[in-house]
Simulated scan of single mutants.
Amino acid sequence: MKIKVLLFIFFFLSHTFYGCSMFKMTHKGKTIVGNNEDWVSPNAEIWFEPKIQDQYGVAYVGFINRFPQGAMNEAGLVFDGFATPEIPVPKQEGKIQKPVRDIVHYVMGNFSTVQQVKEYLSTIDMSFLTSSVMMFVDKTGAYLLVEGGALVLGNQEYYIQSNFNPTKNTVEEDKKKLDYYMKGVNFLKTNQPNGTPAFCSSVMDQMHVKDTQYTNIYNLNKGTIQLFLHHDFSNSVEINLEKELEKGVHSYMMADLFPASSEGVIFYKKYNDADNPEGYLKDIWAKETAGKTKEEIEKYKSTSGLAWLSNYIGYEWMRDKKQVPAAVKIFTFATEIYPENANLFDSLGEAYWNAKDYKSAIVNYGKSLSLNPENLDAIDRLVKIKQEVEKAGNKN
């Protein structure tokens, strides 16, 4: 069954908690912003949308679903977002309702200051932000924190935002629970910021986690983005926003910008091995279950999120119709590990559906239904398969 990614990837699914961290530094009138993007997949991209009429050109960063996880426009406005513990937010009656993707694109295309962003967002119903915070920073060093029920301007010289709600009553306690955030805070206590990209990257290095897939260092006054891949701070690539926007609409897979021998590229290739697409998951399974008892393995299966991860990776491969056989292998492996998981059999059925192997699709949708008789998606697909088979038979 297809994973439903509502809003940003960090707006939350399940699996292990994946967060992000952002450090804003203003020194002698110059502002630099660092961001760690933490996620399971190394399939990260940077893409460029040049100005249209009076709108600003923008560089976006994110993953292959092209949902902006961060951005910088040519006016020096930067954006990012963070998963946070869920809090209820009442609907804001009388305000405009817009998809978050449209909101981000409009803001990045039209505004240069956080004051402008605040004025615009004050007209929008932001009640969908129940488990996330958005942050905008402009050239002056001013920043805007956006929660579902709050728009808060700030102007501290140095500020770190991560996976907490800034206006929550328990914010100080929440911060202390984030060890990576506290590492950044403690680093600032013992190291004097000097306003350089190198210092900013040092802070992000302190706050990276094992699943930090990429790091951006935005130089808002210079108009550059320094990229690091997979928490490898020994290799970086600098992007000149103005020069890239002159090339028109285009994109780069981040891994393609780095040396083949770099840690991030090695991980990227292992994760995306077309000859052995399930190999990455098999390695995780073998490592985590080696030497464990049956009871320990069952506990790992129920708490690790491996089923979710398998489903997510399978759908990444299935985005490309040419890679559907790879998705079949991944979902097959996952159903062998989780033979009682109706969702995984539904996904395997969908993979066979896309491969036009209707016989195998019927078998796996049927298995999904036997495990979950209320799976309406499987019922709908079985009806469609019957129609396709009958249609093909009539043509013959």
Rank of each mutant, 00 (worst) to 15 (best):
A44M: 05
H15R: 12
L121G: 06
T84I: 03
C20W: 00
D80E: 13
Y106W: 12
Q92R: 10
P99E: 14
I32A: 00
S21L: 04
G76P: 03
A83Q: 13
V33W: 01
H105I: 07
I9D: 13
I124M: 06
P42N: 08
E37A: 07
I96W: 03
V58S: 02
P42D: 02
L13T: 14
A44S: 15
I64M: 06
Q92G: 00
F17N: 05
K118A: 15
V100E: 07
S14V: 12
V58Q: 02
P90E: 04
T16P: 01
I124A: 08
E147T: 10
E93V: 09
D102P: 03
P99T: 01
G29N: 12
D102E: 14
E37S: 14
I96A: 02
G29Y: 05
V58P: 02
E119L: 05
S127G: 03
V104N: 06
M72S: 02
V40D: 05
A59D: 12
Q92F: 00
P85C: 01
Q55N: 02
I46W: 03
S132T: 12
A75T: 05
V89A: 02
P88S: 04
K24R: 15
T31P: 12
Q116N: 11
F12D: 14
P85A: 10
I103G: 06
S41L: 03
M108Y: 08
M135Y: 04
W47Y: 14
M25I: 08
N73L: 06
T26R: 13
E74S: 13
Q97W: 02
N65H: 07
G29C: 04
I52K: 14
I87T: 09
M134E: 05
N73T: 07
N35L: 09
H15V: 04
A75N: 07
G70S: 10
T84G: 00
A44Y: 02
N36G: 07
E37D: 15
F48E: 06
N35K: 10
D54S: 10
